[in-house]
């Protein structure tokens, strides 16, 4: 998040979270609202997800990573490169799959 962006409130994040869950068909309503004796409740789950959105993902998004130096390796088309023989295989004359 850039410094000039408004910091979303808990209510705004909760609305975002709930909307996303509704779109997917995940129902948090089966959990109790706030019950410390339950394994999980809506209050604690929402709190944890807000932390992911508010603290963790902005750190990832803001991290600079040079797209030339560290290119995305998107497709299995790179697999033929993977199958180059290793030095050990090349020296021993074994195949490209390892010997298992």
């Amino acid at each position: 998040m850039t410094p000039s962006s408004p910091r979303p409130s808990d209510d705004e994040l909760d609305a975002f979270i709930q909307t996303r869950l509704n779109l997917l068909g995940v129902d948090l309503g089966v959990l109790p609202d706030d019950d410390p004796s339950a394994p999980a409740d809506r209050r604690r789950v929402m709190q944890a997800i807000r932390r992911v959105l508010r603290e963790q993902m902005p750190e990832v998004s803001d991290y600079p990573l040079d797209p030339i130096e560290v290119p995305p390796v998107l497709y299995p088309a790179h697999l033929p490169e993977v199958r180059r023989p290793t030095l050990v295989q090349a020296e021993s004359g074994t195949g490209q799959e390892g010997e298992g």
Binding site: I17, L24, V26, D27, L31, A40, R44, V45, I49
Partner: peptide, 17 residues
């Protein structure tokens, strides 16, 4: 049913966000 996950629910939901 999210209750299937018991107390581990948040780590399985977080990936949605």
């Amino acid at each position: 049913d999210v209750r299937l996950f018991g107390p581990t629910i948040t780590s399985f939901m977080s990936g949605l966000f």
